[in-house]
Simulated assay, not measured.
Amino acid sequence: MTQHWFRLYAQRIDTTKNMARFYAMSIEPDLFGGSALVRRWGRIGTRGQERIDLF
């Protein structure tokens, strides 16, 4: 089976509100032959948060 990798990255910056955020989403293969949806978000320049959903 062919594995496809997808990535999406977005930033939202508003200097008047002191807001600098990032949002990232990717589909990656897992160790068991399935797929994992990996979502990351947070303030730019930090590690942020991450959530992984297995399919």
Score class of each variant (00 low, 15 high):
residue 16 T to N: 04
residue 37 L to V: 01
residue 53 D to S: 13
residue 40 R to A: 11
residue 18 N to W: 07
residue 20 A to E: 11
residue 29 P to D: 03
residue 13 I to W: 05
residue 4 H to N: 10
residue 9 Y to R: 05
residue 25 M to V: 10
residue 17 K to S: 07
residue 17 K to C: 03
residue 13 I to H: 00
residue 17 K to F: 01
residue 52 I to Y: 01
residue 2 T to G: 14
residue 31 L to R: 13
residue 51 R to Q: 13
residue 47 R to S: 03
residue 51 R to E: 11
residue 33 G to L: 15
residue 54 L to P: 00
residue 41 W to Q: 12
residue 1 M to T: 12
residue 54 L to G: 05
residue 25 M to N: 05
residue 37 L to T: 00
residue 6 F to R: 09
residue 4 H to Y: 14
residue 43 R to D: 12
residue 2 T to S: 15
residue 15 T to S: 08
residue 46 T to F: 13
residue 20 A to Y: 04
residue 17 K to H: 07
residue 12 R to H: 14
residue 47 R to F: 00
residue 52 I to A: 01
residue 24 A to P: 00
residue 17 K to V: 05
residue 52 I to W: 08
residue 15 T to Y: 03
residue 11 Q to R: 12
residue 10 A to L: 09
residue 15 T to V: 10
residue 6 F to Q: 10
residue 41 W to L: 08
residue 12 R to E: 13
residue 14 D to F: 02
residue 53 D to I: 14
residue 32 F to K: 00
residue 51 R to W: 07
residue 34 G to V: 02
residue 23 Y to A: 11
residue 3 Q to D: 12
residue 22 F to N: 02
residue 36 A to M: 09
residue 20 A to P: 04
residue 12 R to T: 05
residue 55 F to T: 08
residue 34 G to R: 03
residue 50 E to H: 07
residue 31 L to F: 13
residue 36 A to E: 06
residue 7 R to Y: 11
residue 11 Q to C: 07
residue 25 M to Y: 04
residue 8 L to A: 09
residue 6 F to S: 10
residue 18 N to K: 06
residue 3 Q to C: 08
residue 2 T to V: 14
residue 28 E to M: 09
residue 31 L to Q: 14
residue 40 R to N: 10
residue 51 R to S: 15
residue 17 K to T: 14
residue 3 Q to T: 06
residue 37 L to C: 04
residue 46 T to P: 07
residue 20 A to F: 06
residue 8 L to F: 12
residue 22 F to L: 03
